[in-house]
Design a protein around this nucleic acid. Structure first.
Lengths: 358, 358
DNA sequence: AATATTTTCGTGTACGCACACAAAAATAGA
DNA sequence: TCTATTTTTGTGTGCGTACACGAAAATATT
């Protein structure tokens, strides 16, 4: 392993000079700067992050802002756990994380948390830009303070975020269509129920649906689909009634696509008689959804590995802060196909498993 | 953050004494030992692992033994890259890796490398136990020297390996059957070609085939399948001839399962006329296999994320050596379903991408 | 040419810990 | 009681890096 000292000896200068070159600090003549840079490259010098963080003992505070989760809607637990894991792994690098939650129902709670974060003056922010207007103001203030920020799970365009981490929603919908096509064959009547879609005033759902449709268009198959909205409907009985009414009225429906993470609710709402004849495809491996897979109610789930999204977001930000590594603008999560047969191997992160059960 | 120095000051002793207590070294009177332990607890002292690994800077040498790879058979490149990544990430923890390769054709080359490794006296060994007899002797000698070892990709029973990292072959075959079933519907005549299966005198292939069959058994569907062996056949024209002859003779065959990573060879050997009517399912995302996916020649690939297997094996061994963390005996890799639609997101490890193209 | 100023570079210390060595204290042996 | 031995404790240095400070060299000013 080649150290700064080694480089200094080779270049016949002091460690201080090498240090200046490495960190691009001024006070070094162009000539020696070039020379040292060359030597650094030749010897494949890589900074020892261990020693670095010890010497710096600087604390990096990272603020994370995401929707909360509860037993009714567990989706956001997964990225939370990923972030927690990253925190545990990197806390000796001086990384400190403060976690903020808001309600998807309530943009005021979002704005409130944004204000607190700005006040806090963190070194970086990871967040899911749920509400457009508030996000615009938030990012303006962050930029004013030169605080870098990163989008997770949900993407917006025209911002100076250092990167986006999440799934390509369009393509995941496209894949869902392919799987649906495989399962239903020539039957091309589908139902697309949306649960509280207004809450997620984001583009993910529509992009998935667009991808779904485009697949069939591209194959020159004309499909019929019914979109069904359940807004603010907390009463599962009502969902059930309405669902089964529609299915009764449309006996040709062969498949149900739930473009959000709420397929378990829909599945519960469809009576057995229909369910046996239907192919259900949904997104995200929440505990309830996995249950539906195992019970053969749902054929496919498409996962975006949101645990990894959480983990990776912290990793990317940390690399950015500590080593000034620029990530690529878009980091796309895998589009995983989960079935009854491989589900047990998909989320087998031991850490995740432990935490979930504790 | 409370340091050893702080504790020493509180206890009115030197840092050396505190150090002895922390590491349970001898040379401290019972009385002060108890006193310091109490103070440690009271102040919730936690060792700074960063400073620790910097001070220790112990070098751990890890030997890796795997089959080699070439343009004809790229499978083992992937775990190699995973290992290389882990090496780069952990080299500042003192991890040093020596990589050894052998030929799957030649047990002598295997044995030769084993000998060299034993001679080398590494701190740990990661390897794929290809040849049983030689492995038995190898592990005996390692155990004699108390060198821990780990199996990767291929599992053997009755050994004292600290763990196995790889796929559950049986279940991956089972999943392959489900996908095949989805694609072929009621047609249940299949072809299972094996390329150089003798070379891989291991249980992976047979377990996959077993899982494949069991799926249909469990669904009470009787299937017919033909197994075809291409041993040492380097001439692709011969493969082509034989394949098409069989397909001609058995017009009911609706699907082809290649339980190894060599589906691209088989696909090349099937003429267009047949291919359009067949569902091809194979394993592992080698460059050539991915090409087949993109060309619509292959419907599904099942991946075992061998890149991750390589990466993880180093991580597990490192944690074991440095922090004495015992892994679980079996670490199963995910069984990923790869299609044309999600392949671009499956291997998107930037590092991997870069290295492959360089 | 002599001094002042700026640019460029070298030195020393700290980060928290491990470990070798030295010193002091306690005990044993005479 | 005085040395010899053992037990217990303290000190110092190094790991690789960051950074403040000061020294030297180069340049500018008079």
């Amino acid at each position: 392993m080649v150290t700064i000292k080694d480089i200094a000896k080779i270049a016949n200068v002091s460690t201080g000079t090498v240090d200046r070159v490495i960190h691009n600090r001024q006070g070094v003549s162009e000539k020696t700067k070039e020379r040292i840079n060359k030597i650094l490259k030749e010897n494949n010098f890589k900074i020892n992050v261990i020693a670095r963080s010890l010497a710096l003992r600087k604390k990096y505070s990272i603020a994370v802002l995401m929707p909360g989760f509860n037993n009714d809607n567990l989706f956001w637990k997964s990225p939370y756990l990923g972030i927690s894991k990253a925190r545990d792994e990197m806390n000796h690098l001086g990384v400190q994380i403060e976690y903020f939650q808001f309600s998807q129902l309530d943009e005021v709670s979002y704005k409130k948390q944004c204000d607190i974060i700005v006040e806090l003056n963190p070194d970086a922010v990871i967040f899911s830009p749920y509400f457009q207007k508030e996000t615009l103001e938030f990012t303006k203030r962050l930029e004013g303070k030169s605080i870098p920020y990163l989008f997770i799970n949900l993407d917006l365009h025209g911002y100076k975020n250092i990167c986006f981490i999440g799934q390509d929603a369009y393509k995941s919908g496209y894949l869902a269509a392919k799987l649906m096509h495989l399962c239903t064959g020539n039957k091309t009547d589908f139902l697309i129920p949306l649960v509280e879609s207004k809450l997620q005033n984001n583009s993910v759902l529509e992009n998935r649906i667009k991808g779904f449709k485009d697949y069939f268009d591209l194959k020159q198959l004309s499909i019929n689909y019914k979109t069904l909205y359940f807004e603010g409907l907390r009463d599962e009985n009502l969902i059930k009634l309405e669902l089964n009414a529609i299915l009764k009225k449309n006996p040709h429906i062969s498949g149900v696509l739930v473009p959000s993470s709420r397929i378990s609710i829909i599945s519960r709402g469809i009576s057995k008689a229909y369910k046996n004849k239907l192919t259900l495809i949904g997104f995200d491996t929440t505990t309830q959804n996995i249950e539906c897979l195992k019970n053969d109610e749902v054929t496919f789930l498409i996962s975006q590995k949101s645990f990894n999204q959480g983990y990776q977001s912290v990793k990317v930000i940390t690399d950015y802060l500590i080593q000034n590594i620029q990530p690529s603008k878009k980091i796309f999560s895998p589009i995983e196909i989960i079935t009854k047969e491989n589900v047990e191997f998909s989320q087998r992160n031991k850490w995740e498993y432990k935490k979930i059960n504790s």
